[in-house]
């Protein structure tokens, strides 16, 4: 039983950024455990992606390239992955904690009769050679340290945007997997993927999030946050608090907090957000937090690296202006 395996997520022939993050942490684990790192790549016409996986540390790439794997469908992917795992017996199998990984990993873990650790923020190999897991629970109010003492492979999914990506070129020897899928066992079918109307990066992958709460007073005022995000570049996007979403000002996909998304950007700018415990739970592991609020006692200020007490309708446009001005110098 050996080998650290990572499932490399691609959609439409393009590897997700998180796939490189998972490879990077996998490389680290493989070096610590003295084992090989293998990437699992499934799809149709995706063979050319193997070299990219090698660049980020894959010693081996198990490639399942088949027209049957063109669309991501949980059942077909589960059967290919489980067959490969049974034939090769890796000790660790990692997924990304994206929507795709969160649907796939539990299905794979169950078929293999093991458990699963979702949404890990740190992974290590402990003195006993086991995968040491750290994962936030209660939306980040606590962290749990866990292990699988006898389940193999040890399966975990990795939270996007937490692990730094590191290039580490390896051989990336391609091993072709035979793909045998019984169509009667695939009971879902992809009809359509609709891209969101926003041209901005997804919250989970954004490096900068400008977020608005009740203090925004109405949906039309989010334009000042959109302007600020646009000025901060293509890695910035706009989020919202639960009260802004519940008021119908923003879609639920923008919601940050305990019943929305948990995010870990480099910079989180909270505008008119008081900082209810549910909101703080979803963003307080951001690397830097800026709070703009007219109430000096708002709890958000206790989490902020930088706070400005004042009227966000004056302050936010001034920040945008200052960025434009000073960026030109």
């Amino acid at each position: 039983m050996a080998g650290i395996w990572v499932f490399s997520e691609q959609r439409g022939g393009e590897l997700k950024k998180v796939s490189f993050e998972v490879l990077s942490v996998g490389r680290d684990l493989a070096d610590k455990a003295g084992q090989e790192l293998a990437a699992l790549l499934l799809g149709s016409g995706v063979a050319m992606l193997a070299s990219e996986l090698a660049k980020y540390g894959a010693d081996k790439v198990f490639l399942a390239d088949s027209a049957d794997l063109k669309d991501f469908l949980t059942e077909s992917y589960t059967s290919v992955i489980c067959e490969a795992v049974r034939a090769n017996d890796p000790s660790v199998l990692l997924f990304s904690a994206t929507t795709l990984g969160r649907g796939l990993a539990p299905r794979v873990a169950t078929r293999l009769g093991t458990g699963l650790a979702t949404d890990c923020t740190e992974l290590d190999i402990n003195d006993a050679g086991l995968l040491a897991i750290k994962r936030p629970i209660f939306a980040g109010k606590l962290l749990a340290n866990a292990v699988f003492d006898n389940a193999r492979p040890q399966i975990a999914s990795v939270r996007p945007n937490v692990i730094p990506v590191q290039e580490n070129p390896k051989a990336g020897e391609v091993v072709n997997l035979e793909v045998r899928i019984d169509p009667s066992r695939v009971r879902t079918k992809l009809r359509e993927i609709k891209r969101g109307t926003s041209s901005r990066v997804d919250l989970a992958e954004a490096r900068i999030i400008v977020s608005g709460g009740r203090g925004m007073k109405g949906p039309e005022n989010f334009s000042i946050l959109e302007d600020l995000a646009a000025t901060l570049g293509s890695e910035a996007t706009v989020g919202a608090s639960r009260s802004a979403v519940d008021a119908g000002w923003r879609p639920h996909s923008d919601q940050v907090g305990q019943t929305g998304k948990t995010v870990t950007p480099d910079l989180y700018i909270a505008c008119g957000i008081s900082g209810a415990i549910q909101h703080l739970a979803g963003m307080s592991s951001s690397k830097y937090i800026v709070a703009v609020n007219k109430d000096p006692d708002a709890p958000i200020f206790r989490k902020a690296n930088y706070g400005i007490v004042g009227d966000l309708f004056k302050i936010v446009p001034l920040i945008t202006e200052e960025l434009k001005k000073s960026g030109k110098e």
Binding site: I133, K141, L142, N145, A146, N150, I289, A291, R302, K303
Partner: peptide, 17 residues
Amino acid sequence: KMKVMSLERPPERPPGR
């Protein structure tokens, strides 16, 4: 299958400006 060995609080954020 997954055994929780310990729970901890996330690190406190340094006081801001």
